[in-house]
Amino acid sequence: MSEAVDRQFELQDVHYHYHDVAALRGITLSISAGERIALLGANGSGKSTLLRILDALYFPTSGRVAFDGKELIEERFREDAFAFDFRRRVGLVFQNPDVQLFNPTVVDELAFGPLQLRWPKGQIRERIEECLDAFGIRHLRDRPPHRLSGGEKKRVAIASVLILDPAVLLLDEPTSALDPRAQSQMIDFLTESRGRTVITATHDLGIVEDIATRCVVLEDGQVAADGAPATIVQDHTLLRRTGLLHEHRHLHPDGSLHSHPHLHGHHQH
């Protein structure tokens, strides 16, 4: 198998500026099909921007990004065939579900993607019914989005992307703003990805080892580290430098102040 075919995404020295802010400053990265990657970084490190570059919503100011060997440039997306194929194969779940749920009801939301890609209406209806059951949202089908809870919104948002059965799933902070139960459901969901390439942007170190086989750490728009989750999570120096780790202080019953690095769910005393 040649290297070129193996690489699903290929980024070479990608820079991205907007409104005088340099969000990405030279990213070089290769992603193979089926990988499960956790994209780590503090807020403002460029995680969201990178996901949008991968989803061809932003185009690099300089540098090159290619998907399956084809470069992602604005002109290419003017061709219907290429655009439809790409949009179907790569899906992005936004951090703020309010931005992603812009249709009047849940059913309309699920139907949006397939309708845009001009699937036959009969097929669309079938897929909708399947998705409603698969995600346990059948009881929400005619609900308007402003009457959904945070967890329900996230579920509908994911369902509306997965209805297209994409080969690549990009997720921007999927566990933020979720209560613990919804969070663990999300993690369960992320661990069974069925051969899809899944790239999750997060700053939650606690879930990284469960959901990913590879960790890419971003710092100020550049790649600071790229390796196995177990290694990265142990590297406290790196984590502190990139703002992913902080000192956590709490009081013990005997009045002494205990200070230690804060890692979700991993400390005992």
Binding site: G91, F94, L117
Partner: peptide
């Protein structure tokens, strides 16, 4: 702006379609 990106991400290219 964000909504526009979300729409594009799922294939919106200017024409809108509705279910019957």
């Amino acid at each position: 702006g964000e909504i526009y990106l979300a729409m594009q991400s799922r294939g919106f290219r200017g024409e809108v379609y509705l279910l019957d």
